[in-house]
């Protein structure tokens, strides 16, 4: 039985070429607080040979190397910031799943707030401008009387809105 299992493991290892999952039991640090920090950091770091996976999730050998590296740095007494700086110095910005705020990523970080604020301002201005414009245009001048009656027929099928002031 033991032998069969070993053979099986070998087969799996050879045919796969990669171990089976993310954080391996032998990587875990003895100190739970440090391990928690390592896990937290691992989630922010990209496994560079994978498709959009953090090293915490990835099965690739490179991710394992990086996980061990992160733990070595933590064990050596580095702060989170130092660990990240160390990895960026070694592998470039590509390793960060959350890009740093710099001229290159200005647009990336600013688009969401700009869309929100810009949309809000546009709505506010639109709301102030519209009453006059709409009255001038008339609301349904482009419908023929026949269509008007048809539309009215459609709308009257509505269940009336309940008690609302």
């Amino acid at each position: 039985m033991r032998r069969a299992l070993a053979a099986w493991a070998l087969l799996v290892a050879v045919s796969l070429g990669a171990p089976a999952f993310a954080v391996q039991p032998d990587e875990i640090m003895a100190d739970p607080a440090k391990e928690a920090r390592a896990r937290e950091l691992s989630r922010e770091l990209r496994c560079m040979v994978c498709q959009n996976q953090s090293i915490d999730d990835s099965e690739a050998p490179l991710a394992r190397d990086l996980r061990i590296l992160v733990r070595e740095r933590i064990a050596a007494g580095d702060s989170d910031r130092q660990v990240i700086d160390f990895l960026v110095a070694r592998y470039g910005e590509f390793v960060l799943l959350k890009p740093r705020f710099n001229p290159h990523t200005l647009l990336l970080w600013l688009v969401p707030p700009l869309v929100l604020v810009g949309g809000g301002v546009a709505l506010w201005r639109f709301g102030r401008r519209r009453p006059a414009a709409s009255v001038a245009a008339g609301t349904s001048a482009h419908l023929t009387p026949e269509e008007e009656s048809r539309l009215a027929g459609l709308m009257s099928e509505d269940v009336p809105e309940e008690r609302r002031s």
Binding site: R46, V95, P99, L108
Partner: peptide
Amino acid sequence: DKISVGAPF
């Protein structure tokens, strides 16, 4: 330039 945008972002 290569950057990554992932879950933390």
